[in-house]
């Protein structure tokens, strides 16, 4: 058993027994770290320091080789992100990013992935309300790309020809990118018009448009793509909260079913 101290971002918190919690952090160096925080519910109420979702925390824990669950000894909050709760869409978007990371089993740490998460959360914290959908979509696509599944938007995934600026394309989930208008005729998957492709490229470049049109459809595309490549057996719990919020945001003109 070794005492380990490392920074991490709290992704998930489950109550356990009377006053304890099981906490799951994303750490830059060790990936997901799960710890048992004994008595933490009482401690926090007595001023033992906050330990809240999405916070950056320095944790010290007893690391047991070969075990999945370690024992938290101390924690020190490095950065609070409690203001993510000030807006339901902001909160649901941050929750989606957490769930997205927890969906993928990681064998080792990735400082770049941790950066993607924290910059995504900070972007959600700082942005204006009309920018929220674009911000979490950009962070979400960035995380999926960091997992090794960057979508191909420049060339057709089937014929390798450059995607023309005009025409209706399809997003082929299995092949991981766009089909040109010609190949789209025989393909399946959500349809993407020229405007949606421009928006998606901007999202992937980390510069999503403010007041993104069709945010619910963009989310649906990200969700389907992520599940196809990360874990086809499950669904995102956060989608039940997030999808209706995006649909009611009215952030863009309605788009035909299945079309972004």
């Amino acid at each position: 058993m070794t005492l380990v101290t490392r920074p991490g971002t709290l992704l998930r918190s489950h109550p356990y027994s009377e006053s304890s919690r099981i906490l799951r952090f994303l750490t830059p160096e060790a990936g997901i770290v799960a710890v048992m925080a004994r008595g933490v519910r009482k401690q926090a109420s007595k001023g033992g320091g906050p330990l809240d979702l999405f916070d950056d925390v320095e944790i010290t824990y007893d690391h047991r080789a070969g075990r999945d669950l370690h024992t938290l000894r101390e924690h020190r909050t490095l950065k609070r992100r409690g203001e993510l709760g000030s807006n339901l869409l902001r909160f649901a978007g941050a929750s989606f990013l957490s769930e997205l990371i927890l969906t993928h089993t990681m064998e080792e740490g990735s400082p770049r992935l941790h950066d993607r998460l924290t910059s995504g959360l900070d972007g959600l914290l700082a942005c204006a309300s009309e920018e929220i959908p674009g911000r979490f979509l950009a962070a979400g696509w960035g995380i999926v790309a960091e997992f090794g599944f960057p979508p191909e938007l420049a060339r057709c995934v089937r014929c390798n020809l450059e995607i023309p600026p005009e025409g209706m394309t399809r997003f082929d989930l299995a092949e991981g990118g766009l089909r040109c208008p010609e190949c789209a005729a025989s393909g399946v998957g959500p349809r993407l018009g020229p405007g949606a492709r421009t928006d998606l490229r901007a999202i992937l470049a980390g510069a999503p448009p403010s007041g993104l049109r069709g945010a619910a459809e963009h989310f649906n595309l990200l969700e389907r793509f992520a599940l196809h490549h990360l874990d086809r057996r499950r669904v995102f719990q956060t989608s039940a909260t997030l999808a209706p919020l995006l649909a009611s945001e009215g952030t863009g003109d309605p788009t035909p079913e299945g079309q972004v």
Binding site: K46, D52, D55
Partner: peptide, 11 residues
């Protein structure tokens, strides 16, 4: 009230 705590345990 401390953030991240549970009301159940506040004195």
């Amino acid at each position: 009230l401390p953030m991240g705590s549970d009301l159940e345990y506040v004195d």
